[in-house]
Simulated scan of single mutants.
Amino acid sequence: MTGERLRLMAVHAHPDDESSKGAATTAMYAAQGVDVLVVTCTGGERGDVLNPQYGQVEGGIEGMRTVRFAEMARAAQALGVRQHWLGFVDSGLPEGDPLPPLPEGCFALQPLEVASAPLVELVREFRPHVMTTYDPSGGYPHPDHVMTHRVAYEAYHAAGDAERYRGHGDPWTPLKLYYNHGFSLARMRAMHDAIVAAGHESPFGDWIDSRQAREIPERTATTFVPCSDFFPQRDAALRAHATQIDPDGFFFAVPREIELAQWPTEEFELAHAHVPTHLPEDDLFAGVRGTVGA
């Protein structure tokens, strides 16, 4: 394995998630020569248009799928990464009390082994050394995010077992699994305080109050990747998702000079490793580089 190229697989639920969670990190590694593959579980077909400047998308979920595929291609280009569609249909975000049932055939209703099989096959084909995805809560309670965690966790642990998912490629065991920590309460508080101290209006106040009111437990970040040089690529990827991201909205409400001074890293939680680890880390490939000789 001496001199083998490092490989990173980032598993996400919808197009735009790869740009709002760990995007600068993937752009940085891609620029360093790491082979980075973003896996998108669904086409985002049932997403609403969240950018008030965009207008309407015609053609129902098929029309939205076409638009979001094109957006994803532009975002991947901005980040310098490869991207693969897993092929499932967006479940939508149910609203109401009681919540309505999920649409028939959607991603979140697939049996775990059915939803995991194509990802296991892709892991065995791409052979990532490191995988990233969401924590068991999904990061927020969208059914596709929770399902993405389940599928990525299953694939990470099953891909190396020759007795499981027979007929889906030769076994491959990834060496590390991480959960994204893009919207931690610690980060939001630090940014909120710095923005207010600089005399600006903070976009985080209501969000912090909401998270505290819901008593969402904070998970512990273990890995702090210094990637601020690649915030411009992250922002370009966000803007590529024009149906979802308002260029005058939340993601761009933080003055970039404050962000660079206060929070120049992206955070992850090490969920599992087959190599020795020493926490905290500043590199997703810590403990891996020597193993593969890259």
Rank of each mutant, 00 (worst) to 15 (best):
A76I: 01
F251T: 01
W263V: 02
R289K: 15
R7H: 06
H272T: 04
E95L: 14
L260T: 13
Y178K: 07
S202E: 08
P94H: 09
E218K: 12
L122F: 00
V275C: 11
P255G: 08
S210V: 04
P171T: 03
P98G: 13
D135V: 00
L260W: 06
D235K: 11
Y54C: 03
R211W: 12
F126W: 10
P15A: 09
V36F: 01
H145T: 01
T148Y: 04
L37T: 01
G290Y: 07
Y179W: 15
L50K: 13
V38P: 02
R239W: 01
P15S: 11
P103L: 05
Y153L: 11
A30S: 15
T277Y: 07
A197F: 08
Q212G: 12
T222M: 07
A10L: 09
H168P: 03
Q233Y: 01
Y178P: 07
E218S: 15
A70M: 06
Y54A: 04
V275N: 11
P203M: 11
E163N: 12
A221E: 06
A236R: 10
G199A: 07
A75S: 15
Q110K: 14
R189T: 13
D97F: 14
Q56L: 13
Q212D: 15
G287N: 10
A271R: 05
P111A: 06
P52T: 12
M64N: 08
R164L: 15
H129M: 07
E95I: 11
A152H: 00
H241R: 01
L109K: 11
P171Q: 07
Q53D: 12
L86E: 01
T66M: 07
I208M: 03
A237C: 06
A108L: 04
E125L: 02
G287E: 09
G287L: 09
T223N: 11
A162M: 08
A27W: 00
P103F: 04
L238D: 00
T265G: 06
R239K: 13
I195Q: 08
D48A: 15
T220S: 12
H168C: 02
D161T: 11
A197I: 06
M131F: 03
R234C: 02
D90I: 03
A273I: 00
F126A: 05
E201D: 12
D135L: 09
R65T: 14
T277S: 15
V130W: 01
Q56Y: 04
G63A: 11
P15M: 06
C106T: 10
V36H: 04
D282K: 09
G33M: 13
M131N: 00
G138C: 13
M64R: 13
Q56I: 10
L185W: 01
H157W: 08
F107R: 01
T223F: 04
C106E: 10
G182W: 06
M147P: 00
L112C: 08
M1F: 11
E104N: 02
Q77D: 14
L112D: 05
P98C: 12
T132K: 04
H145F: 02
